[in-house]
Structure formats: structure tokens, C-alpha cells
Design a protein around this nucleic acid. Structure first.
Lengths: 357, 357
DNA sequence: CTGAAAGCGCTTACAG
DNA sequence: CTGAAAGCGCTTACAG
């Protein structure tokens, strides 16, 4: 049974209550609760006692009013269904916790522009904004800058936007995938791109892959578009494998699609992987490591991307710098069973790492 | 290039600035921005004009100080790796957006108790708290109640905790799975439970399943524990299928585990699904529908669970009620190819629905 | 080390 | 419809 709470009685315990009860001024209570303030040991102890007894808890919103720091970061994204977004959130939570910061999440309604989410975030006086998908307009970015709210665009190059970005070196990684596939003796290449425009990183991967295939002297890679899901990959797989010039190596813009291609190859065409076809994904989702797929893929170092972004946002001098940064974090090529290899390499290490970017 | 921002110049535009510029008092500006206040049409228009020109934006933290509503809900969880958590977040975002509310996310550091996350949330004057995993102590729940902050425990029965919960009817759904498997002619049953204690719903599923198997006159279901991941399921699958009394129907506490069992059966024992073994999961993650698995599972109606929770939290009278609620939302049994069926049913509808709870 | 006071940016009775 | 004033719960110079 609930004890009834009269609406008008719902007054939170404030520092003034504690002060009265402890026989000190409200300012001392405030100081007692801020680490580096001068309060006599005994006074502080007494205040803590009283606070505990009364159930006092700092009101961090009130505090932010005067410090103009809310200890809140905003994460804005257009695409909550994307599993990668969740890995970013999880990783962010981890880092922010140790800095006593918290994450306020803003999504964009389907039709809307991401600017509206950023606009919202600004109303909450966030200390920084992380953009995970969508392309903020130059004008909203300028607004953020004027309001002294740092913005970092995550997981993809910022392009021409006036903002700082931290992302995987998509182009380089795609080039590497192309080289590995060429070196292993494949001859007909395809790329499965994501149809969604907000995922501009898909383009970098496409370019890196295709330019390398050409540079190595092969016919241009076939490029098809699809939804960036398993179903989209499955469909793209059917499309590609039905062609008279069936590719023997398919690189996909992400793991979900790659797994879709893989299943299409096996279930619809009875192909054996990797004998008849090599498939490579991107991201290294947990599913990529599942025994049933054993997918070769490019791992994004999410922890590193996120901690770099957090560092930038937490840097008190960031806004006084004079240029946007574009930080590229190297990925990791994870070689698994879905790709054919030169026999010499077969017994070699399953994971190649690039140490520096 | 960044225009340099002098730290001391970083003053946000306030309603007072707008007032001065528009030649009205600050209170009128405030009223202009609150829907149902009496401001002359012309005045309001002028204020909006000036506000736009100056780049004014309401400070919602300051506002919350006086209204004592922050329009923020807290989501607290111990388990960010759980894919289900993300589906809840996505669904929540959707609902909160239409109510002009936002989500502040709190995680618990690995060793810590969920209470610390709730404690944190309270400092941010959230309008309500959604608990997604972990078991809040009675004392912290009492605190929340005293502070007039409603708490809803999601996705699992609250047990004895003094709180309201909204969850899938785990026990009933598990009973139904048991009945379906029995009806289809299976004879040796097993349940794969989650080893993690915070996932108490796993227990409800176990009980519902096991009690029904017994009630239908079969040997008790074999119960094994595992990590609630693909790898955990894979391992549990090997364990179960190596037994002399190998089960012919395995029900798993969630989809990831079920898929692990499925792969173990196929890859390690060469079994054919569902001829040699039926496997059932729980949740209906996207992967369950993948052609390569085609997993029979119990879908949680996440949207319904979340919207029910949001309704409760948004109900202004909630705290004046006199008892905790425990709302059960029916699930949906999704019959797919991983389970054998009575031949009569083979051609029948693939999805059975229970319409009301 | 402590207290009185000002102020952060709002909302909301209360008069006019 | 509008303005002056009080106040939400804090922090932070400033004196003492």
C-alpha cells in the first residue's frame, strides 16, 4: 500500500532545511557539498549527518543555473534502430560515468531534420552535443558555437560541415579490404551500399573500395544499394548472385547486410562460403563472430572513438581553438571464415591490426 | 576556421535581453513563450521576431526550477549490453518525443548497485524513473516516493518490491510455449536459463515452463544455466545435446541463447531443425526472423509495455493512488520454422495471437 | 572558517 | 493585456 502523498506537501529537502537543522548558514551547507571548499571538518561532518537524516540531495539543475554547466551531454541521432548507435551509447555511458556526466538522448521524428533535436538539446543547456547520424545544418552548428556548446560528429567524416568529427577511417579500411580480397585471388568484386543518405560513411567505404579495385587493374566493382538491414542485404545478395557476371567477393557497408548476403548465397544459391564466394562486412557486431556466420569484417574501435570525442567535449579550452578537427581512428580488420585466403596465410594469425593512423 | 569565442563572452541570450530589445517587461516575454498565457497578438509577434533575431532559446533548466517539472525521465539499467534495453530506449524515445519529454540515461558501474543510479537520477529532478534491470532496494523506492518521483519497473514482475511494474506475462507465455511443444508431440524438454540474477524474469519463464511440462505428465524439464548471450546458448546447447537423454525440445530464456543452441545443434551435432530438435526463444529480436534461423519465439510487445509505463509516469494523479500496480502485457507467440508442429497445423497461420490479457 | 547578499533565468500570483 | 516583485535552490565573491 502507498502512503498517500499530498501534492502540496511534495517539497524537496533543500540546503536551507539542512542549514537550519544543522545551525549553520545555507552557504556553508553548499560549500560542504562541494569538494574543494573550506569548511571545518566538524561542521562538514555535522552537515552530512543532518543531510542524511533529512534525505537531502543536491538539486543539480539549480546548481547548473549558476555554474552554467549541467554535466549533461546530448546524444542526437536520426536512427535509433541502428545497432551501432546502441554500442555508442553503451560506450559513452561507461566513459561519462567516470566523469560524473550524464547522457540526455534526443531523437529526430522520422520526417524531421536533425536540427530540431539539436535545438532541443540547446534548451537543456547541455555541456556538449554528440551527433550520431544526420547532417546538422551549418546554421545550427554556428548557433551551437555561438552558445559555446561544443559539437562532435561521431562515426563519420564531417564532410564540409563546420564541426569537429571523430570517426573510423572508412576510406582507408575499405581500401585495405579491397587489397586483401585482391591478394587472395578474387576477380569479380561487388559493393553493397546503404541507401540511406544520412549514413554518409557508406560513401567513403564505397569510394575506398572501388578506387582500389580499379587501381589494382580489375573491372569496376558492381555497386548495388539496399536498406542497411539483414533483409536489405539478403535482397542485394540475390540481385548480385543472379547476374551472369556473378561476383566472387562482396564487400558490404555493414555487418547486418553482409550477413544477409551470406544467407542469400547459402540458402538461395547453395553456395559454399568462402569457396564460392567471400563476404566482408563492417562494424564487427556480435553477430559477426557467431559460429554460423564467422564473418570477416572491419571492427570499429568504438571505445576509442567515443573516448576521443569525450575528451574533446570535456576540454575546457576546446572552444578557444581556431579550427575544426577531423580525427580518424584506425579500425581493425578481423579475418574470419567468410573470406578465402592465400594458402600461405591460412595458418597465420586471424586478426591483422593496424597500430597507428 | 573557428571564430574565437572569449570564455567570458559566452553569455546566453535570456528573456531579459529579448524584453529589453522588444520594449516589454521580462514577464511578458516569459508569457509569450508559454502556450496558454494572455499576451496581445501583436506583442507576441514582436517578441517572437526579436527572439529569433537574437537567437533566444528558453532555458528549460531554469524553468524547471520554478515549475518543479523537468520534462525529463530517467532510464536506469545495469545492463547496457542487452539488446532488449535498446529496443526499450528506442520505443521510449518515440513516445516521449510526442510529449515533449526527454530521456536521461543512467547506468550502473559493473560492481555497483542500481540504487546509486537512481540516487543520481533524483539529483536531476527527473519527473519519473524507469528501471530496466537491477532490483532497487525498498529504501530507495521509498525515497523516490517521498520525493514524489514515480518509479516504474519495466519488463519484469516487481516481485515484492514496493513499486509499480509493467511487464510481459512471462509465466503465462512460458506455459503456452510448453503446451505448444507438448501438443506437437515432443517428449523430452529442457530450459536454458539466464545465470544473471538481475534478470529475474528468466525465473518466471522457467517456472511457467517447468510446471506445465510436469502438469502435462512428462519428466521434469532439464534446466541448465548460461550467460544470456549467443555464446552462452551455444555452450548450453552442447551440454544438453551431449546428454544420453537428449531433449527434443529446448526453450531458452531469450533469443540470443536460442540462436546459440540452434547453431550448436547444427554445427556440432549435425542435427536438422526442427526434425531432430525444436528450439524456442523469447523476445523476437530481429535476428529471430532471419532466414538462417527462422526461430519460433515469444514476442514482447515493447511498444505496449513502454506506452503503458509512460502513461503511468505521466499521470498527474498517480502518486495519490493508494496501491502499487503490476500490469501484465500479453506477448505474442510467433511460430516459425524452428519448431515441429502437428501436421494439421502445418499449413495454418504462422502466427498465433492472444488478443487480451 | 563562516555568513549575508547577490544573482543564475525563469514562472507566477498580484495589482493595475 | 502588462509590469513589478517574489521566489525556485543553488554558487560565489566579499567581508568579517
Amino acid at each position: 500500500m502507498l502512503e498517500k502523498v499530498e501534492p502540496r506537501k511534495r517539497r524537496r529537502v533543500t540546503s536551507t532545511d539542512v542549514a537550519r537543522e544543522a545551525g549553520v548558514s545555507q552557504s556553508v551547507v553548499s560549500r560542504a557539498f562541494s569538494e574543494d571548499s573550506s569548511v571545518a571538518q566538524a561542521t562538514r561532518a555535522r552537515i552530512f549527518d543532518v543531510a542524511k537524516r533529512l534525505g537531502y540531495r543536491q538539486n543539480r539543475l539549480a546548481r547548473s543555473l549558476i555554474t552554467s554547466k549541467s554535466s549533461i551531454f546530448a546524444l542526437v541521432t536520426e536512427d535509433f534502430a541502428n545497432p551501432l548507435v546502441h554500442r555508442f551509447i553503451a560506450s559513452l555511458m561507461h566513459i561519462l560515468r567516470s566523469n560524473d556526466h550524464h547522457l540526455l538522448v534526443f531523437g529526430t521524428p522520422p520526417g524531421d531534420h536533425i536540427d530540431s533535436a539539436i535545438e532541443n538539446a540547446l534548451q537543456y543547456q547541455v555541456d556538449g552535443i554528440l551527433v550520431l547520424s544526420g547532417s546538422p545544418s551549418d546554421s545550427i552548428l554556428a548557433e551551437c558555437h555561438r552558445s559555446a556548446v561544443p559539437v562532435v560528429i561521431l562515426a563519420r567524416d564531417r564532410g564540409d560541415a563546420p564541426a569537429t568529427s571523430v570517426s573510423c577511417d572508412n576510406r582507408y579500411e575499405a581500401q585495405r579490404v579491397a587489397n586483401v580480397l585482391v591478394d587472395a585471388g578474387h576477380e569479380r568484386f561487388a559493393f553493397v551500399a546503404s541507401r540511406i543518405r544520412s549514413l554518409s560513411f557508406s560513401l567513403d567505404r564505397e569510394h575506398g573500395f572501388c578506387e582500389t579495385i580499379l587501381a589494382r587493374g580489375f573491372d569496376p566493382a558492381i555497386v548495388v544499394n539496399g536498406e542497411s538491414t539483414y533483409a536489405g542485404g539478403y535482397k542485394a545478395g540475390i540481385e548480385l548472385l543472379s547476374r551472369p557476371d556473378r561476383p566472387d567477393a562482396i564487400f558490404c557497408s555493414n555487418d547486418s547486410m553482409a550477413i544477409g548476403v551470406l544467407d542469400a548465397a547459402r540458402l538461395e544459391f547453395g553456395l559454399e562460403i568462402p569457396r564460392d564466394l567471400s563476404v566482408v562486412g563492417f562494424d564487427d557486431l556480435p553477430m559477426a563472430a557467431w559460429k554460423g556466420y564467422d564473418l570477416t569484417t572491419v571492427r570499429q574501435r568504438i571505445e576509442e572513438i567515443v573516448s576521443t570525442a569525450a575528451e574533446i567535449l570535456l576540454d575546457p579550452n576546446y572552444l578557444e581553438q581556431s579550427a575544426w578537427m577531423s580525427r580518424l581512428v584506425p579500425g581493425e580488420l578481423v579475418l574470419r571464415g567468410s573470406t578465402r585466403r592465400k594458402s600461405a596465410e591460412d595458418k597465420a594469425s586471424m586478426t591483422a591490426r593496424r597500430k597507428s593512423g
